[in-house]
Amino acid sequence: MRPIRVLAILLLLALGSIGEMARGPLARTAEGVLPGPPGARALMAQQIPRRGRVQQRGRGGGRRGQQMTLDPNAPYDARFHFVRIRYTADPNRTTGRPSYGWDDPMWIHDYPRAERNLLKILQETTLLAPGDDDYDVLTTDDPELMRYPVAYMCEVGAWNPSPAEATGLHDYLLKGGFLIVDDFRGERDLQYFVHTFRRVIPGAQFMQLGKGHEIFDSFFEIDPDSVIPPYGPRDPRYYGVFEDNDPSKRLMMIVNYDNDIGEYWEWSGTGFYPIDITNEGYKVAIDYIIYALTH
């Protein structure tokens, strides 16, 4: 299974690079703000069944050919829980891209090993002291999400929120929620995500964050450019969306473009990735969470 996965990743990396070469690198403005969405590539929002084939029935997880099962959410206790966002995806985009050979929806990638490992690391390195099972899966239109002001969403290249999901996320972010977006690559996906996100917060500007930003020094002092993406030799970038598009105000969302720190969490302890690189993935995550809890 692992060689297949490695081969798949290499293939994807190659495809992604080709695609990028064809389109040219994503233009950056002087302020590091992405340009507006490409209207020509506006996509029609199409609904897919929210649950797909995912069922919540006891702890566990599965890959390829298995029907993924979700662990029950941990009861609310006012502490930090790792919350993964389950979202509606555009079936055209999920079917139009390489399938990676998995049957599960894209939002569930790395679940639940990634969160379990991250929670362990948080227990060991910080005073956050979450429980081993303090990880949940919620949709953005679920009122329960408001009890967890930090959330994680991955593989947003096919994210296609329903109006209720978009409204829910809009309110979540404006009230004080913080969203970590991870694990997507290629300008096409980025432009798609930017465009889709503007259905949540119209006019939202994605501002590039560099080493000097507070978020990269909230627990560990790290150089985000040194976090090598598991996809291979790419140029990861970090975008932030601020309240009122004002960088002096609250950061509501951070976007790991061309990177996948969740991948490191999932496979840490298996030796699949080098320890140093894995550590960087954890450091970024801890910085994000500490920042989200203090800013």
Binding site: A78, R79, T126, L127, L128, P149, A292, L293, T294, H295
Partner: peptide, 13 residues
């Protein structure tokens, strides 16, 4: 504040 928790963020805000 003795532990990272949501309370701090929201009071600051």
């Amino acid at each position: 504040e003795g532990e990272p928790r949501h309370e701090l963020k929201f009071i600051r805000r």
